[in-house]
Computed example of a mutant assay.
Amino acid sequence: MSKILAFTNQKGGVGKTTSTANVGAGLARAGQRVLLVDLDPQANLTKGLGLVEAEQNVYGALLGEYRLKAYPLHENLALVAGSSALSGFEKVKGDELDREFLLKELLEPVRERCDYILLDCPPALGLVTLNAYACAQALYVPLEAQMYAADGLEKVLELVGRVRRRLNPELSVGGIFFTRHDGRKVLRRETAEELRALYPGLVLTSFIRESIALGEAPHLGQDIFTYAPQSAGAADYQALVAEILTR
């Protein structure tokens, strides 16, 4: 039975999609069977991994228009495409009974065929994110170590508490990790230290440095290991994958 990990943060632009793509690719390289699911209406995970014309996507599958379709990307790695129509998911399904469990029901038949399912959540705490939290075992929260970094994190942790009590007692925070990190900057170092003190045991040892290659790879539809395997970004995500595998 696969383990479902959700990459989430209410703040946008923190490297959530980049992390979903590259952690997924790193797990696949380590021999794990990985399914990525693009739940962000911007569908950047789908576009950034080179899937341009996907006839079937997660939104249509959630609506029951067709069965869940996973598009193979590399050995051990497949992707369920995203859709801009996900922005209207709450309006369409908001009054439906058990609406929080639609994603869980959709993923249940494929869980035996995967070791990991990674969910790229939207930067909003709406019904799509609630569906992700209701079926995940662990959340991973990318953060930039800068002012107000903890604001979005607090809201995520509050929602985790409510979801754990009402919908998914198995849900936990797998870890918080820093992206676009530059240890030479005093503010970044101090913020990182403050968050480690605030959330002991939750902040991971691994961090992702600022990297030009990480920004370039999605424009070519590639993960960092395919695009620049010797880069700092590849080394950092390899370390993060290794840490996730031990948790």
Rank of each mutant, 00 (worst) to 15 (best):
V23S: 11
A150E: 10
A70V: 05
C135P: 15
Y116G: 07
N9W: 03
H219A: 12
K11H: 11
Q56W: 05
I224E: 11
V52L: 04
D40Q: 08
Y71P: 05
D95M: 00
V203D: 12
Q56F: 10
C121H: 09
R67K: 10
G161T: 07
Q10A: 06
R166W: 03
E112P: 00
A239C: 07
E170D: 15
P229G: 08
N57S: 08
S2N: 14
D98S: 04
R247C: 01
C114F: 10
L167I: 10
G215C: 01
Y140R: 15
R184S: 06
Y148V: 06
A61D: 08
V37D: 15
V92A: 05
Q238D: 14
G221S: 05
A25V: 07
L68V: 09
G215H: 02
R188F: 08
G26E: 12
L5Q: 14
V80M: 07
S172L: 09
L73P: 11
G82Q: 05
S83V: 02
V34E: 12
S211Y: 10
R162I: 13
F101V: 07
C114A: 11
K16D: 03
L49K: 08
A78S: 15
L204Y: 06
I224M: 07
C121F: 01
K155C: 06
A134S: 15
Y199N: 11
L45C: 04
D40C: 01
A70R: 07
I212W: 13
G233N: 08
E105S: 06
L153P: 08
G48Y: 09
Q137G: 14
L51D: 04
Y227F: 15
R247L: 07
R33H: 11
E193T: 09
R29L: 14
V58D: 08
